[in-house]
Design a protein around this nucleic acid. Structure first.
Lengths: 325, 325
DNA sequence: ATGAAAGCGCTAACAC
DNA sequence: GTGTTAGCGCTTTCAT
């Protein structure tokens, strides 16, 4: 493995000149630049990023720690972060916390050890884990879920859930249920709150609520359970859950829209393929990621400014699954 | 930012002792270990991974470069790699080449610079890009698509495509089409070849073939085009494409199964939700990732062994979309 | 414009 | 069992 000294020797200059020539920092005699370039090429020289970063005390790497790599919502965020970071010359390393605070902590420690320039995080719980990042001064921005005293990019889930529920009400459904995620997960709580907002504002009931894991199996279980209460519509807080919900409904012989109206969070690519097509709450996932990356880059450049919170809107896309008859 | 010397000073020992105590490498007086631990805690010390890696000339990081983060097949591979790597103490950084040879090259260069221990790659094209990795001696394993003289984990796509096509034939379909990816993408070519194998073996025709990008839009376009040839069944080489195919079929008023049988690659979670449920070729994605990680770890430990190629089988899951009437 | 040399934080010989 | 010390490969003063 060729090092900078090898290149220097071959080009007949000092290592300092090689460094300058290759980084174009200071002005170097064009003749020497050419010699250095040639020597580097011949040797197949690749600068050692570790050494460079150690010396410079900084890296051009961002960590993105998300709670589920298999959820299209988060992969879309990843794309947004990546695109923005890329054009600013940063690489993005993606880590999968799997909705597990311990894995999250592990990856935060790795990020800390590797001295990444900043981290974008969808926090599994409210705060403690970022403490170390904070005391080390590593910039963080939270996405999807809030984090105390931190830049963040959120979606107004509560309002969106309320609007979705109101849509169900105005479509003529009367026994509207809500299938949401675990207590303590902010998006799950917000979406439930929005559901209640709508019911309360309309003076409606009953409240038919179930919580479960943000997974297909959770959605299925919650739905099978909820079916005892004979709901005629369901607000589902997550697309993974929606799969389980739809399966359970199908197995119970209930027709979508007609027998049970369904609206689910996240505009998954397959939403238009089911029959009737699924009404969804679309979140601007890619834009969330892009904005998070912008915020992070800004804070890396200017660490001392007060935290900024961006809230984006989600919007309802009405399709057949919420049309009766 | 506390360094090892700060800890050493505070604990009243040498930096070497701190290093030994914290890494548990050599045997150290338990009393000193405790003092060091305490000092490290008080200072909020986190070892600098950059310096450690520079010194050790190795990192405990693997790079996984995949062609599409939004494709469930690849995210499942990522999970497999991650799980296996994790338990061996390695972190995985995920990079998205986006089916773009230049981005792939960029990420390979980053991997090279960061001196990752190894890389798992789903190559966009046949070879050139890994040349630098090879000359640097960085272990590589290819997944999903072959790479010359390299460990690899592949799926017998051709056979699986053949079986899927035979299933279509034996289900009574007679004008079977194939929607596959771009020429040069190995999986696309293999699946097309398997389709032809089945047709030839059965002495059937016509060959109705279309190529397009591995995206929903590609699938849609290919299908709209193919419809002119009045196919009564379709083999679709990729799940993203399948979305476009199904949309196009629906818009043309064709009923799945009855009018047009469809079998698609990859057992996506929503396959059972469409009506009738989608027959698929299931690839063992997670296992591919796990096996790739095992191979990579083995090669990191033992660089000089000859390349091993693992081929896993895919299997057909018959559902309603290939049942006539 | 170029070179000599210090040092980023850590680990691994090598001494004791 | 513990300390001393020499680098890992690079960038960056400080001289010249």
């Amino acid at each position: 493995m060729a090092t900078i000294s090898d290149v220097a020797r071959r080009a007949g200059v000092s290592t300092a000149t090689v460094s300058r020539a290759l980084n174009g920092k200071s002005t170097v005699d064009p003749v020497l630049v050419a010699r250095v370039r040639a020597a580097a090429d011949e040797l197949g020289y690749h600068p050692n990023g570790l050494a460079r970063n150690l010396r410079r005390q900084e890296t051009a790497v961002l960590a993105l720690i998300i709670s589920d790599v298999e959820n299209p919502f988060f992969t879309a965020i990843a794309r947004g972060v990546e695109d923005t970071a890329q054009t600013a010359g940063y690489s993005v390393v993606l880590c999968n916390s799997d909705e597990n605070p311990e894995k999250e902590q592990r990856y935060i420690d790795v990020a800390l050890q590797e001295r990444v320039a900043g981290v974008v995080l969808s926090p599994t719980d409210v705060s403690s884990s970022v403490e170390r990042l904070r005391q080390r001064g590593t910039p963080v921005v939270a996405v999807d879920r809030p984090l105390v005293e931190c830049d963040q990019v959120l979606v107004d889930s509560r309002l969106a859930a309320r609007e979705a529920t109101e849509h169900l009400i105005s479509s003529g459904y009367t026994r509207i249920g809500c299938v949401t995620g675990p207590a303590g997960v902010r998006t799950a709580d917000d979406r439930l709150a929005g559901y209640r907002d709508a019911l309360d504002a309309a003076g409606r009931g009953p409240r038919l609520e179930r919580r479960a894991e943000y997974r297909a199996s959770g959605g299925r279980q919650a739905t099978e359970d909820l079916l005892g209460d004979a709901p005629d519509a369901l607000l589902v807080a997550n697309s993974a859950m929606a799969i389980g919900v739809l399966e359970a409904l199908g197995e119970a012989g209930l027709r979508l829209g007609r027998d049970v109206g369904v609206v689910a969070f996240d505009d998954v690519p397959w939403a238009t393929l089911i029959d009737p097509p699924l009404t969804v709450v679309a979140q601007p996932a890619r834009e969330i990621g892009a904005e998070a990356a912008r915020l992070l880059l800004a804070r890396i450049g200017e660490p001392a400014t007060p935290p900024v919170a961006t809230t984006l809107a989600a919007h309802l896309i009405e399709r057949g699954s919420t049309r009766r008859g």
